[in-house]
Design a binder for these strands. Structure first.
Length: 490
RNA sequence: CGGGGUGUAGCGCAGUCCGGUAGCGCACUUGGUUUGGGACCAAGGGGUCCCAGGUUCGAAUCCUGGUACCCCGACCA
């Protein structure tokens, strides 16, 4: 075995790290907490971007780009926003380096201190709302529906590849509206877009819900989220959509004249997903042999391994496959025909499993003569021999089947790991098992805080369209109208 | 920020206790044989032993100081 991956049961966290590095998605960089996203990992991100970008455009949004650097003073204009982000901001203080007069290398030129320090954006609400002030005068300028693809920096104390890195890639939508209701509708619409993307493309079931006040975005009136369950039963927030009310409009003085000619503050939403989704993808589906990628996001959907002795065999097999390659291309299926003669078939099989390629085809002279082909699917690791004739359609269906199968597998796992509990004793017992807990909560931040302190579990969300039922808070016994979802989270 | 670990060839590591020619596996290069589940043989190339200072005839190894990254926790839109 050239590449040993720690097994999930042994050490889930180590399994994840091994997998990310050994499958070639990303590496640690020489900067603490920052990663190098390698071509294979970036290809997944590009597929995610393409799908999401289309969904954003289809819902009326356009892309723009705002600066990486933000004047320090901007951040403090919205009180709770600065409180949330100040402690993890990287700051630019100087603009020049000079040769070190005492030795080798360069030092910061003390004479090149910035008048006002700049922060590297941890998120762009402030610089964007400062810009919107100039763009919005009338109700005719609204709504403003803008998205940006960007990188942000948050100086996290502890980082993990993809899940929490100091620098990460994301998209952030920032919209401006003339009414509260319209902004709320936008917030909910984008949550639906995220949920659809997670379930349809990533094959990852998610719970849609609202955050409790404790877990809200710094500066939001309401934070909506999608929460996914990883294979170790922990929760991962996979996307958020915030209703910002008029907080940023007030902080940056963004007003518009309504139809009656009166000035009003603008209503806002913001929403984002990040490269963390790649972490989610890995932890939702993969196994001890490597990645398991959903066909819709796999950079390579079909790998073909010809097994040959000498140029003549290879040529025969290549000729046999030529029409199939065209057919698959026409079906928009990405294929790699791997005729690399320096690696043996067994090596390639293992490598494509590690990389999570959904379907692998193998053909040697035996199959060639018989008019058959070996088909291996990554999700179940099943192999079968099929007739070569008509294999294009078979593969197309198989990819759909794999996409559906891994979604169903993840959904079955999740649904069987959500427990309803009604007493504190049950809660304490259940939280030591993998999975989510559905329980009544009295709605107070104090109770949530206390539960977190005692169990490390947080309220992941208050599910949307939640069933209303009378109950008692699992901790205080105070009356409650609905259940909320508790879990330990990444 | 607390605790732990690690810095030696591209990668993974041994050597450090007990100072004395810098090693192993993988990868790489060349040639050959192989090819249906991670091939084999032969030859070869590759080093600021994290940095600085000290002890010593001599330091990867001992001493002092620094630094970087990783892991566990606390923290975390």
């Amino acid at each position: 075995m050239a590449k040993e991956i720690t097994s999930r049961v042994n050490d889930y966290s180590q399994w994840y790290n091994d997998l990310v590095v050994k499958s070639g998605l990303a590496d640690h960089s020489s900067v603490r907490g920052c990663m190098v996203i390698k071509p294979y990992g970036f290809a997944i991100w590009e597929k995610m971007q393409a799908a999401l970008d289309k969904m954003f455009k289809d819902t009326g949004h356009v892309n723009a780009y705002f600066p990486l650097l933000i004047p320090k003073s901007f951040l403090s204009k919205e009180a709770s926003h600065v409180e949330g982000f100040a402690k993890e901001c990287a700051v630019v203080t100087h603009y020049r380096l000079i040769n070190d007069p005492n030795g080798k290398g360069v030092i910061v030129d003390p004479d090149a201190k910035l008048e006002e320090e700049l922060i590297i954006r941890p998120t762009s609400e402030t610089i964007i709302w400062n810009t919107y002030k100039n763009w919005i005068q009338s109700y005719r300028d609204l709504p403003l529906l803008i998205n940006q693809w960007a990188n942000v920096v948050r100086w996290e104390m502890r980082t993990r590849l993809f899940l929490r890195t100091a620098e990460f890639l994301w998209q952030e939508g920032h919209t401006a509206h003339s009414t509260s209701q319209e902004a709320i509708e936008e917030t909910e619409r984008m949550l639906d877009v995220y949920a659809e993307f997670a379930e349809k493309w990533m094959a990852m079931p998610v719970l849609k819900g609202k955050k409790s006040p404790n877990e809200r975005f710094a500066g939001a009136l309401d934070t909506y989220c999608i929460e996914a369950m990883m294979q170790d039963g922990q929760a991962l927030q996979a996307g958020t959509s915030h209703f910002l009310g008029q907080n940023f409009a007030k902080a940056f003085d963004v007003k518009f004249a309504n139809k009656e000619g009166k000035e009003e503050f603008v209503w806002a939403s913001s929403w984002g997903v990040s490269t963390r989704l790649i972490g989610a993808l890995i932890m939702a589906h993969s196994d001890d042999e490597g990645l398991v990628l959903p066909p819709m996001l796999a950079p390579i959907q079909v790998a073909i391994v010809p097994i040959f002795k000498g140029e003549e065999d290879l040529k025969k097999i290549e000729e046999k496959f030529a029409p199939l390659l065209l057919e698959l291309k026409a079906k928009n299926i990405s294929v790699k025909f791997d005729k690399d003669d320096t690696k043996r078939p067994g090596f390639k099989f293992a490598e494509y499993e590690l990389k999570g390629v959904p379907v692998r085809l193998a053909m040697g002279m035996r199959d060639y003569e018989a008019g058959t082909i070996e088909v291996a699917r990554r999700d179940t690791k099943e192999k079968s021999v099929q007739q070569f004739e008509g294999i294009g359609n078979y593969i197309e269906k198989l990819l759909e089947d794999i996409q559906a199968n891994i979604f169903n597998r993840a959904k079955t796992f999740r649904d069987s790991h959500i427990r309803e509990v009604n007493t504190w004793d049950e809660f304490l017992k259940a939280i030591e098992e993998p999975g989510f807990i559905s329980a009544h909560w009295d709605g107070t931040p104090a109770t949530e805080e206390k539960i977190k302190e005692l169990t490390k579990a947080t309220i992941r969300c208050i599910p949307l369209n939640n069933k209303q039922e009378d109950g008692k808070c699992v901790f205080t016994g105070n009356p409650s109208k609905e259940r909320v979802v508790f879990a330990r989270a990444y």
